[in-house]
Design a protein around this nucleic acid. Sequence first.
RNA 1: GGGCCCAUAGCUCAGUGGGAGAGUGCCUCCUUUGCAAGGAGGAUGCCCUGGGUUCGAAUCCCAGUGGGUCCA
Length: 924
Amino acid sequence: MSDLADEYRLEYFEEEGFVRKECSDCGNHFWTRDEDREICGEPPCAEYDFIDDPGFEEAYSLEEMREAFLSFFEDHDHERIEPYPVAANRWRDDVLLTQASIYDFQPLVTSGETPPPANPLTVSQPCIRMQDIDNVGKTGRHTMAFEMMAHHAFNAREDADAEYAYEGEVYWKDRTVELCDTLLDSLGADIEEVTYIEDPWVGGGNAGPAIEVIYKGLELATLVFMCMEQDPDGEYELKDGNTYSFMDTYIVDTGYGLERWTWMSQGTPTVYEAIYPDMIAFLKDNAGLSYTDEESEIVGRAARLSGNLDIDDVDDVEAARGDIADRIGVSVEELRELVEPLEDVYAIADHCRTLAYMLGDGIVPSNVGTGYLARMVLRRTKRLCDNVGVDAPLDELVDMQAERLGYENRDTIRDIVRTEVEKYRETLERGGRRVESLAEEYAETGEPIPTEELIELYDSHGIQPDMVAEIAEQAGAEVDVPDDFYSLVAERHDTPDGTETVTDDADERFEDLPETEKLYYDDQQRTQFEAVVLDVFERDEGYDVVLDQTMFYPEGGGQPADTGTLSTDDVTVEVEDVQIEDGVILHRTDENPGKGEFVNGQIDAARRRQLMRHHTATHIVIHSARQVLGEHVRQAGAQKGVDSSRIDLRHYARIDREDVKEIERRANEIVMDNTAVSQEWPDRHDAEAEHGFDLYQGGIPPGEQIRLIHVDEDVQACGGTHVARTGDIGAIKIRSTERVQDGVERITFAAGEAALEATQAAEDALYEAADVLDVDPEDVPETAERFFEEWKDRGKQIEDLKEQLAEARAGGGGDAEEIDVGETTAVVDRLDSDMDELRATANAIAEEGKIAVLGSGESGAQFVVAVPDGSDVNAGEVVGELASKVGGGGGGPADFAQGGGPNVEDLDDALEDAPDVLRQLQDA
RNA sequence: GGGCCCAUAGCUCAGUGGGAGAGUGCCUCCUUUGCAAGGAGGAUGCCCUGGGUUCGAAUCCCAGUGGGUCCA
């Protein structure tokens, strides 16, 4: 096994007089121009040297530094590209957020399937990393949101066997280091002080040599040379314990932290003051934080010290605070009081920037996916604001960052923030009440609130344990939060195991067949074609027929497959389903048309027409919804059908009736405009540059060219079949909306004939209702309301009357049988009315000091037994005895019981036995 | 994508197989008339919808609808 040491012997280092050293402290190897240098320069081997002593010639703002970087690389033959959204799940499904510039090019560009937008290129990519969220504000250098400035070059070996979307070498290690070195020099850094540390990189199945660039104690950049992939037979064993071998493609992946470069140029105590000084000032002022000269001095020194410490988790921060306080010569309490509000302010500024990125790029808060992350950040930010006493509305704070970042959808962002803050407030209020009553309960018993309750409160109601503790304390209850609280919560989510066996049935039978020519894109209106049967494969039921070309659309992009027939001179076979595998289209048929035959294909035209109408209508509905609800609306899924289709949209509020009507109106305007629906196959990077990522509502297709569908002003990457003109859709009718998840709304709609049918079905329902009520359809709502009110009134009246009837009956005696049972009198009677009446009568009789035994045969045999106060007869037992005689059971409290059974014919016998039963039970 | 929780009076909620409740608000009267005052009486309800189990379901089971929440 070999390590990668040779990979770092660069000509550039040699030419420039670098020497390779081993750090006397940590043992890492590094390259430096300074022959006497002993340590690598990276904390904890060294401390920050740039606080109050900036490392560059001039101080740069964040914007100035970004521009300086990008234009430097433009001047050195790189093309500047626009950054991608922070919501990486918009072009890849393996991650949620963009965490590095290379994410922009994974997986299609890095694998060589798709060419990069430019080569070499430079970009400043906004990124969000949630991993360090607890450190933000505390360490002086951690941020959740940051921009990774980068230059990338995509190379492929000339001797590679396979075809790649880029060829040859643009540049590799020497040039990369040279560019970085030159950049530092041009900014006025003392390049004698710069060290390049050897630090092999491994991640996500790829690996390669990498270099950390350290200057004045701060890691300014990482230069990664991605050129290896995991390989069981690989020659190199790397730090993750796996073996790796070289790939055909090799990629320069660099990362320069914009914030750190800005910080380096200013030398402020923390990175936050360097990157958004205005917002920090505003927040400090708003929270009423002001410091005397002496206090400022302490805060400054503490900040410097915390920055110098190598702190990677919060426990260390807390422990370190004591250390810092000692070194400054103040008490820990004093230090905490001074520093904690500032830490909150730093974190608020950072979190607001994170939210601006997330919401600005169209993430909608939700209980799933990126939306959930946005919600978490927002709630955390709100807590920090409350904690430190910032009373400016959160939407205003987020807007400050959104404005700085140049977002144009600021009104929507503010609206989303306001909605979310309100939701959070309601959750807290609900939770507060719940905790209060729980706390009171446990305060009475004197027991601490059990952990099980805490988990339930957090998991099901979103109430943090510290909030429970706070409220419980006021109510005088104890709370003991276990240290492993969050792992206990996690345990609750452990599923019995869901090891999915990925059924990877990559069918080798089709490997030698050519890709089927897709006729359905040439003329989407045609339904007939001729073809040659290349091969036929037998299936469990039916056959897979492969043709040289086809008009049949295979299932894909939410559009179901076409059906139809294939005919030879001799036979006609039914096509029941169509699938595509590696470009080969499989027609699933009931019979074998015969290999080598010429066939005449005919697709079910009516079905296809409806599918096309629904597909084009889907684009129109999304487009209309975006106009009505806002530009943040994005497709979260779609399914087309013959009778109806549905689309799921990301939106932060319920779509109400007014919205539906407006969306429907706009959609039908587009239909009535009868504009042409066009398709084109542009280069993917040209398309992205012109239309942005909103193209990919339904997923990202691979390849150099992508198919775009234009409907009205809407443009989407789409592989489906569409009508020629919007008028062909006929009409679009929205049938229903539902909230399928928080932040995701589903619209179900019908197009063409189905729209007409849907409308007629709704009308039928109305007419039928009108017919029942015997009124005009337009009077149905009013009449229904009146009927409902009257119905309720009558219910009340009937109840009232029953009570009167019962009292009259109890007083009047009637034909009821009266028996003496010991010292009390019992009334036994059969009334044949409902339970309510039976109960009322029994109550009235008991009021008069008599035992009531009433039976009814109205719906099954039923009994009610009521006993007056002071009687020693148990009503429940009486009922139980009687009910068993009619094949049922019964029970209830000792003074009032009811029961019954299915055998009505035995009711009279049971009642006749009642006196005996009563006497027996009394004697017992 | 998965897990969990909730739905009862205008509001906040209790009730977990057998007669629908409390607090608050509302109405009437009394007391007092000074700020969230006291006393007495009264009206509140398809117990979310639909199925099932049961002699009997607000209560148990299933499905749906609406909301909440945690996780990947």
